[in-house]
Amino acid sequence: MNQIKVLDLQSLSQGLPAITPAFGAAIAEAGAICLTDEAHQPGVELGVEGEFSTQFKLDWQPVTEQTRRCWNDEEYTTEQAAYGIAFLLIVQLTNLTVIERSRKGTGFDYWLGNQDSVATLPFERMARLEVSGIRRGNRGQINARVKQKTEQTRASDTQGLPAYIIVIEFSRPISIISAKQNSEGTVFQ
């Protein structure tokens, strides 16, 4: 019998190569807000569809009133929460990790590199990551967002690197992961 793996949002506070522990802790709080606001309890299952088909249980710390006041901007909170879950999904489902924030205008959010080579600098940019969050959306809205974000990555297609597009919808919760192939037709996993 297969046991469902847990994505613990609090583990983001340990950081990643391009995510400081402080930023990781902050986006974990954003995730807790989004999931709690949608009436989910720790242990709720996140369905993953698209390039991968699996499920994870989500775990997070309780939301305090101070946390709610801090994360009062729903749009910003949803975006930050989506980053956190997307980072955990990339680390769990691929051999990649977040190695660098992308600059504005590139069409994607983060550079991804091999998890096995994070001890050696400089990190090799192996793929791109574009993330989007939707607090409450139907399947049509989710699919439209995936398409929009896939198109957005065209600005950096000249890099010749594959791209992962991850859309997180919090009311279900569900994650759609789309993989855009590189110029040789491959996607790293």
Results as ranks from 00 to 15, higher is better:
residue 51 E to G: 13
residue 183 S to A: 14
residue 124 E to M: 04
residue 111 W to S: 07
residue 148 Q to M: 11
residue 87 F to N: 06
residue 16 L to I: 00
residue 130 E to S: 10
residue 105 G to P: 02
residue 16 L to D: 09
residue 139 R to F: 13
residue 161 L to R: 14
residue 169 E to S: 10
residue 175 S to C: 13
residue 174 I to T: 14
residue 6 V to N: 04
residue 74 E to S: 08
residue 80 Q to H: 12
residue 1 M to V: 09
residue 91 V to Y: 15
residue 52 F to W: 15
residue 36 T to Q: 12
residue 79 E to D: 14
residue 101 R to G: 04
residue 123 F to Y: 14
residue 179 A to E: 13
residue 8 D to L: 00
residue 139 R to P: 00
residue 150 T to L: 06
residue 20 T to I: 00
residue 124 E to H: 13
residue 185 G to R: 05
residue 24 G to N: 08
residue 133 G to P: 02
residue 87 F to G: 05
residue 104 K to S: 09
residue 96 L to W: 13
residue 155 A to I: 11
residue 98 V to H: 03
residue 179 A to N: 09
residue 142 I to V: 15
residue 173 P to Q: 04
residue 182 N to F: 15
residue 109 D to L: 00
residue 154 R to Q: 15
residue 85 I to L: 14
residue 177 I to A: 07
residue 65 E to M: 13
residue 89 L to S: 11
residue 184 E to M: 07
residue 37 D to W: 05
residue 53 S to R: 15
residue 93 L to A: 07
residue 178 S to H: 09
residue 77 T to D: 14
residue 188 F to W: 11
residue 111 W to A: 12
residue 110 Y to H: 09
residue 186 T to A: 13
residue 140 G to S: 12
residue 1 M to L: 09
residue 122 P to T: 11
residue 5 K to W: 04
residue 55 Q to D: 11
residue 125 R to M: 05
residue 71 W to N: 07
residue 147 K to E: 15
residue 100 E to F: 07
residue 181 Q to S: 10
residue 165 I to N: 09
residue 151 E to T: 15
residue 143 N to S: 13
residue 15 G to M: 07
residue 181 Q to R: 08
residue 52 F to Y: 14
residue 130 E to H: 06
residue 161 L to F: 02
residue 143 N to A: 15
residue 43 G to N: 09
residue 62 P to M: 07
residue 102 S to K: 05
residue 15 G to F: 02
residue 172 R to M: 07
residue 67 T to K: 12
residue 45 E to Q: 11
residue 151 E to D: 11
residue 166 I to N: 04
residue 155 A to K: 14
residue 181 Q to G: 04
residue 173 P to W: 02
residue 121 L to P: 03
residue 119 A to N: 10
residue 18 A to V: 08
residue 129 L to S: 10
residue 101 R to S: 11
residue 48 V to S: 08
residue 175 S to F: 05
residue 9 L to K: 03
residue 101 R to F: 03
residue 78 T to M: 03
residue 139 R to E: 15
residue 177 I to D: 11
residue 169 E to W: 01
residue 42 P to E: 12
residue 49 E to I: 01
residue 30 A to E: 03
residue 176 I to S: 02
residue 156 S to F: 06
residue 28 A to D: 06
residue 52 F to K: 13
residue 25 A to V: 01
residue 158 T to L: 10
residue 30 A to M: 01
residue 26 A to T: 09
residue 137 G to M: 06
residue 169 E to L: 01
residue 37 D to P: 01
residue 77 T to P: 01
residue 84 G to H: 14
residue 177 I to Q: 12
residue 95 N to M: 05
residue 84 G to E: 15
residue 95 N to R: 05
residue 66 Q to C: 01
residue 57 K to V: 01
residue 41 Q to M: 08
residue 152 Q to F: 01
residue 175 S to V: 02
residue 45 E to V: 06
residue 4 I to M: 13
